[in-house]
């Protein structure tokens, strides 16, 4: 790769009272890409992001942003980045414009620079009409747009978005995806976290799947899916009592990579559907399993997630539950 490295994270750890929120994380973000951290709640995404934006000091390891160390050269880093926190970090009593004016002063813009940029940003996020109303009158989507405008005010080299569409309606969500794509088109580097698989799939150039503070796998969505090796045939059976027999029978067949029981049937990973489908149907017939439904899928990011973490993103970690 001859691409410019925008962020270099090396063996990053963050420990809270002997609990590793982030555990030996290493990755690089290239200039101009949308990089995603995908993981369930409590995976350590926000902690990682807060370290990159200099708000947390790593317990060990380092993070370098545009060549500057996140601890020793924090001020240089802060001047180059924009941050959109996970919570709606909005002051209910201030208007949208006042939010941006306050941040303009904190980024040391002159009055003229600030006024010009605030006007542009309000247009971009379509809040001009509401700019002079207190933020407590904003809808969730409008607050998020204001959040994003705040993150963009310094005209950052890198924009950090923590769960940018969490809890938003579908339209606001799509709108925010559009902004992110447009920012990338303008040459901005974007680092975002999400626990939505479709968001990671559609938006990110590369992503790291993170769980329990560790990176499980990393790559472009397409690479990750290909790496799983093969497509999936999902069977839904009429009765499930003969399912174990079918599962056993299908395992170790040449065209079949793996078989996994679900609640209603089997997920069968196949190398080529042309060869595997006859085998599956023959087997089912022979064992007297009547098939209600048969579905053939290219791997989705959900499958990548399950393959690398052993569970779906919506299921909680077994340890986390007992804790």
């Amino acid at each position: 790769m001859d691409r410019t490295v925008a962020i270099d994270v090396s063996r990053l750890c963050k420990t809270y009272d002997s609990h590793n929120a982030v555990d030996e994380l290493s990755f690089q973000v290239y200039a101009g890409e949308i990089f995603g951290l995908l993981g369930p709640n409590g995976a350590g995404k926000s902690t990682t992001l807060r370290t990159l934006i200099t708000l947390l000091h790593p317990t060990s390891g380092t993070a370098t942003i545009m060549g500057y160390d996140s601890v020793r050269e924090a001020d240089k880093v802060r001047a180059m980045i924009g941050y959109v926190p996970q919570e709606r970090a909005i002051d209910r009593f201030l208007t949208g414009r006042e939010h941006l004016q306050l941040l303009g002063a904190l980024y040391h813009l002159t009055k003229e620079e600030a006024t010009k940029r605030i006007g542009e940003l309000l247009t971009l996020v379509e809040l001009e009409a509401h700019a002079d109303r207190p933020a407590k009158t904003y809808s969730g989507g409008m607050k998020r747009k204001l959040d994003i405008a705040c993150g963009l005010l310094p005209d950052p080299k890198i924009l950090f978005l923590d769960e940018p569409t969490l809890g938003l309606d579908v339209q606001s969500r799509l709108r925010i995806w559009e902004y992110v794509r447009m920012l990338k088109a303008r040459g901005m580097t974007v680092v975002m976290t999400t626990n939505y698989l479709d968001e990671a799939d559609q938006l990110c150039d590369r992503l790291a799947i993170i769980d329990g503070g560790k990176i499980k796998t990393m790559g472009s969505p397409a690479e990750l899916k290909i790496a799983l090796g093969g497509d999936i045939v999902a069977l839904t059976l009429k009765e499930i009592d003969r399912m174990p027999a079918l599962e056993a029978d299908l395992k170790n067949r040449p065209a079949i990579t793996s078989v996994r029981a679900t609640t209603k049937g089997l997920d069968i990973r196949v190398e080529s559907p042309e060869k595997a489908l006859p085998t599956i149907l023959e087997s089912a017939n022979r064992l007297g399993c009547s098939i209600e439904f048969i579905q053939y899928n290219r791997p989705r990011l959900d499958d990548v997630f399950i393959a690398h973490t052993g569970r779906a993103i919506t299921e909680s970690r077994p340890e986390a539950e007992s804790a």
Binding site: R50, I53, L55, Y83, P85, E87, A89, L103, L106
Partner: peptide, 13 residues
């Protein structure tokens, strides 16, 4: 509690 402080502290102040 609502993250505003974090936003302020992420600026180069």
């Amino acid at each position: 509690e609502n993250g505003f402080l974090e936003r302020l502290m992420s600026t180069p102040i």
